[in-house]
Design a protein around this nucleic acid. Sequence first.
RNA 1: UCCCCAAUAGCUCAGUCGGUAGAGCAGGUGGCUGUUAACCACCUUGUCCCUGGUUCGAGUCCGGGUUGGGGAGCCA
Length: 461
Amino acid sequence: MSNHQRIVSVLNAQSVASNLTVKGWVRSIRVGKSITFMTVNDGSCVTSLQVVLNPGMDGYDNVIRMGTGSAVGVTGTLSPSPAAGQAVELHAEKVTIYGGVDEDYPLQKKHHSFEFLRTIAHLRPRTNTFGALFRMRSALSFAIHNFFKERGFVYIHTPIITANDCEGAGEQFRVTTLDIVSPPLCDTGIDFSRDFFGQATQLTVSGQLEGELLACGLSSVYTFGPTFRAENSNTARHAAEFWMVEPEVAFANLADNADLAEDFIKYLCRYVLEECQEDMAFFEKQVDPGVMGRIRAIADSDFVRMEYGEAIDRLEKATQGFQYPVAWGLDLQTEHERYLSEKVVGGPLFILNYPKDIKAFYMRQNDDGKTVAAMDLLVPKVGEIIGGSQREERLDLLERRIDEMGIAKHPLSWYLDSRRWGTCPHAGFGLGFERLIMHLTGMENIRDIIPFPRTPGHAEF
RNA sequence: UCCCCAAUAGCUCAGUCGGUAGAGCAGGUGGCUGUUAACCACCUUGUCCCUGGUUCGAGUCCGGGUUGGGGAGCCA
């Protein structure tokens, strides 16, 4: 292993040290007649380390010709800085150039648009914004595991390849090893019995159904993994490949589910404010002024819980008009959700107990005969960030609902078995990880949350 | 998939009434005794997205397409 120091450690220690080595990429170089300043960043923190170069140093003439973006190692003495702007600086005694750049290097020491940076996604990790973003993404991943670990949840891995075609959560990507030019045929079309798995398979759109089976044995479980949707969605909030967190809890009802979701979101808000201070300050200053205040407010607030019926009443009484109709039985449109979360509540908002006809077959039927125990958590700007429900645990009611909706029962026999033997009330939800990060950083496009995003027409890198 | 908007130098953009293009940054050269996206001077850089049309003449006007952005639907 190399014995060089991470820049974040050097800046935090701020102690005088000789024979110190750092390695990273040059962000800026300012050449003077008798002194040269170079800032080096290694991605360990937003702040770059100032390196001071004197003309007497070996190889000085070569070093000062390096361009922004060069990869270097610098060895020297760390000293207090006499000038404003940084507490310490590294006086170089030796500089190693690992990789130079030429005039074609696209990143400059200036503002670039996110649209341009998306076209050079292989280089954008070297920018301040994406450094901060990917550090936050990593920190939040660990925070999610911490949250559930502290509460005794078991981290489970559900299948990525699945034969479930009735999950109802969206279009799926086909997984096959068949010859797509001349596949084997049978009476009903392509003969998937001769495919790799002996049946038609797809990439998962949710680990929920399998998660329920594990919860009905381990009590409290969660998944955190990739999810795939083949929808032709072209928005700032949709990707074909994204990560989802899906807890599932046995012996829990809808109220317990909402309580868990509220605790979860607040925990993550507090986590980034306390553990990602420098990166959050960067987003506050450069990306979304006000984001830290909003997150603090969420961490300190009590989330409003509103019945679907009350939401409809509020919308019907609204003084402003809506493009889409409002009536009991119709789903809420984005304009309605924004009105409720931004105008009526001004913060996170649960909508509870939706009409059964606009929700999935597995949601628990309420005693009113009209609604199911579903919940959505809406947040200002990003919209729906969590969708969940209490699950229908009563076998007869579940089977009746499957029949009503025209869904084939045979492929779900294992799911129905969980209700046949030792059934129990249980509930869970799904959180879109990238949407969470958008909400916590103020970044406005999901393509800037994923290192190499997959969207319709795009699988580059 | 639908609606709206945009595309000009490596990047960010300006370009008036239709008359063959400009700034800042980047890059190059020189200057500057401590800079902070350094500063100062000079220099270089163009398939004006593609395609068809109108016109004496199109970056500019019109049709078609491509790509990108915003909004909507679907959803997380």
